[in-house]
Design a protein around this nucleic acid. Structure first.
Length: 196
DNA sequence: TACGTGATCACG
DNA sequence: GTGATCACGTAA
């Protein structure tokens, strides 16, 4: 069953990032569905330097982060990759969770068609790879996550802290000390974790 | 380990 | 207008 708006509107973005592990991310494009279990996330809060909205800085790109929780924030990274985030918290508080990796579940054929000739474990094991596999591009920016193009559902997977590993977030050296926050969460032992 | 890639943002 | 920057992926 789809996660409800109240799931995303909680005030602690780190909790939301943790509880997204084990949920199913789904897209439906032209009637065909692709999905995967979320196995890696990162939390971003306006209060720290890693975040696009640090200090409340609002720009054309990150505007949707200031909306109520429950929308997609998709932006282009390094001119090549679309990165998919889940906006959290209440309106005006710019927090979000980056989905960094999923374990493929349905629509594998479509995923390979979009990704090209890669191995199973490379199919969705990174933030740019998974958006490519699921067909997520910037037209998804601002979409609500309880509609029918893209959503996240609870499939009853029981996850507790024993199954989750935390670490430093990846690729944000510019954030100074905030780069050391343990706000990256991974499903322990999963084969689709993005990198060591 | 190196670099392609192009939108974005803070400057004027 | 312009240039530095960047929440990555791939080949090597």
């Amino acid at each position: 069953m789809k996660l409800e708006p109240s799931f995303y509107r909680r005030k602690n973005v780190v909790s939301v990032a943790k509880s997204l592990i084990g949920k199913l991310l789904v897209t439906t494009i032209e009637g065909s569905q692709t999905s995967g279990i979320i196995v890696e996330t990162e939390a971003y809060s306006w209060r720290e330097r890693g975040c696009h909205a640090y200090g409340g800085r609002k720009t054309a790109r990150n505007e949707v982060m200031f909306e109520e929780g429950g929308r997609a924030y998709v932006y282009l990274c390094y001119g090549v990759h679309n990165l998919f985030n889940v906006v959290t918290n209440q309106r005006g508080v710019a927090d979000a969770v980056l989905v960094r990796a999923i374990e493929p579940v349905t629509g594998l054929e479509n995923m390979y068609r979009r990704r090209g000739q890669v191995s199973l474990y490379q199919l969705t094991s990174g933030p740019g790879k998974l958006t490519r596999a699921l067909g997520i591009d910037r037209t998804y920016n601002g979409k609500v996550l309880y509609d029918d193009d893209v959503w996240i559902e609870d499939i009853g997977m029981k996850i507790n802290s024993k199954h989750i590993e935390a670490g430093k977030r990846i690729g944000i050296d510019y954030a100074g000390d905030d780069a050391n926050l343990p706000w990256r969460f991974m499903m322990k032992g999963n084969r689709w974790i993005s990198r060591i």
